[in-house]
Design a protein around this nucleic acid. Structure first.
Lengths: 339, 339
DNA sequence: GATGGTCATGGAACCGGTTCCATGACCGCC
DNA sequence: GGCGGTCATGGAACCGGTTCCATGACCATC
């Protein structure tokens, strides 16, 4: 039993399709009596106009751009999204933004396939997610341009984002420069749920900075877990119970850094006098709470990513834009080690 | 000069429309030679397939739901949006989410008109914005259901949100119950840029609580300005310079409350020992910084709003859902007045 | 009673793709 | 040489609306 069309309604009401259309569009040119008949038929059949057909015949030309991102749960995604919005509103506004949110890793692949198949969007911005070779091909086949906003890696596709290895190194070097030697790393499990190696990359940078200073990586100081404040807090509590606890912690994200700080305070220690903490991201909260962190220009990455995508859609091509360099933002959670 | 269609391409390439379509869809059933000819014609004419027509003929049935909200700048919008996403992903997922963001108040009205005219969406969720009588009629005419997620008021249309007057009263009563009598109010100008009376309503609650306790509203204690942390900080600095400064501040939003706290600390005073601060919203940051506030269930409001909209689209009707009651969340920024 | 205007109405043509069916070329095999 | 099969191809029909044009009813006017 297929959905009723305007012709079914016309037949049911005993009128022509034109009349039904006029009723639907509130034309004045319909007698009250006929209108009633048509409305009755519509109600009876449960008819709902097909928007696609409406738009085709009206000639409305709307272009869509898709943005896909993990469930809006982490502040860093939100900031990137904010940048995306900026780029879009700076533009001519000829595109509508369709937001796809990935609520579970399992569904992500299927969503990409659906996006390619539906061809609803002209372009897709992929925020903080990876796209497999297979899905890249699907998108290309469907004629959908795509750009990533995420950490750089061995990218075989255009991405705007930070070099996480360099960032991890930068954070660790900053702690080393303050005189710390017992430096812990708190991060996500590798590889994380979306099989995206952020934590791993930042750890690599951490390890290489230590190594360059002749410090061996102490696996007791490396604590990995699920992303989130509470898990980071738990991991930090474990660190503080070590016989030889770290004097500084590099948390792979600001959210996790906040968990670290909270654990340190609950253990009766002070930040930064007893333990220093540096985060990564520079989300808005960090400014409020005075967290020292590595600024990765989140808003700007969303903005540049979208801008580049728009450029691709206009077939201007051009180089992938680059973010300003990563920088350590010194606030109040880092200091030289005690003693 | 209208855009080239598939028929133009077919003519140009000297083939049938079916063949062009096959090339577009990477069918195996086309000889290399023909494919080349078609591709050349496509390139020459600058042909781009019309997605609308594709979808109509393919029979793809995608429904869209629109969400319109002020530029993603305030955390409270983001939390509401998060709730929206939750509702949508709990559902059958038959809808795509189109995000409209209002970057300037002037453009807002025009955007609503465009939305009504385009008829791209089946329903519209309006977050933290007002919809005039005129625009409500336009939406209704276009057959677009809409629901608001914003403070209740003299609503002639369905909205899910807090009672701001009651909330303002609740916050003020809490401060009164601690023993404060010199209580200031820091909020947005009325009416604000989007002509939405949040600040006014919360102030009304504030005034009525004071009145019920026999305290006259002291206009020196009422400071209004642009929304934002820095402005609130400035206003608070002014308050602290009064001959008889307040011992407690009710900030109309958590973001503003953070500005208040920062001003108090910069003035060499302690929170809450010298001055208490209560906010409004209970955004995520408030948890991290230990801000006492009025919880208005932001995430839940987005969720319920979207859920109700989906229900309307299924024509189940039903009552507008109600949020759990507002509640004061006591944290570390409020205490009895000094002395 | 003929003329002309207004108005509600039916229905064909159209929007721009996809898909299915008929056609004819070409090949291999009996 | 006739037959059946495969394969590339053209083009009509279709998706489900909107719009325009022709039609005929009805009324007022001369």
């Amino acid at each position: 039993m297929r959905k009723p069309t305007i012709r079914d309604v016309a037949k049911e009401a005993g009128v022509g399709v034109g009349t039904v259309s006029r009723v639907l569009n509130n034309s004045q040119q319909v007698s009250t009596e006929t209108r009633e008949k048509v409305l009755a038929a519509i109600a009876k059949l449960g008819f709902r106009p097909n928007r696609i057909a409406q738009r085709l015949s009206r000639g409305t030309r709307v272009q869509n751009i898709g943005v896909i991102l993990p469930f809006i749960t982490s502040p860093s995604f939100v900031e990137r999204l904010r940048g995306v919005q900026m780029a879009l509103s700076e533009d001519d506004n000829e595109y509508e933004l369709i937001l796809y949110n990935v609520s579970s890793p399992e569904r992500y692949q299927a969503q990409l396939a659906t996006i390619a198949q539906q061809r609803l969007v002209e372009g897709l911005l992929v925020i903080s997610l990876d796209v497999s070779q297979e899905h890249r091909e699907m998108l290309t086949q469907a004629g959908i341009a795509f750009v990533g906003v995420r950490g750089l890696g061995s990218n075989s596709w255009p991405c705007v984002g930070p070099d996480n290895v360099a960032g991890g190194k930068l954070a660790t070097e900053y702690l080393l420069s303050l005189g710390h030697t017992r430096i812990a790393y708190v991060g996500d499990d590798f590889p994380d749920e979306y099989s995206f190696p952020t934590s791993q990359d930042r750890f690599t940078g951490y390890a290489s900075a230590l190594e360059e200073h002749g410090i061996e990586v102490n696996l007791d100081y490396v604590r990995l877990g699920r992303y989130g404040r509470d898990e980071a807090k738990r991991l930090t509590a474990e660190l503080l119970e070590l016989a030889d606890p770290p004097t500084a912690i590099f948390a792979m994200s600001d959210v996790q850094a906040l968990g670290c700080i909270s654990a340190i305070r609950e253990a009766g220690l002070r930040v930064p006098e007893d333990v220093s903490v540096i985060g990564f991201d520079d989300i808005e909260i960090s400014y409020y709470v005075g967290l020292t962190t590595v600024r990765q220009h989140l808003v700007e990455s969303g903005r540049l990513g979208m801008r580049y995508l728009l450029q691709l859609l206009r077939e201007d091509g051009g180089d992938v834009p680059r973010l300003p360099p990563l920088e350590v933002i010194e606030r109040q959670t880092t200091a030289p080690p005690p003693g």
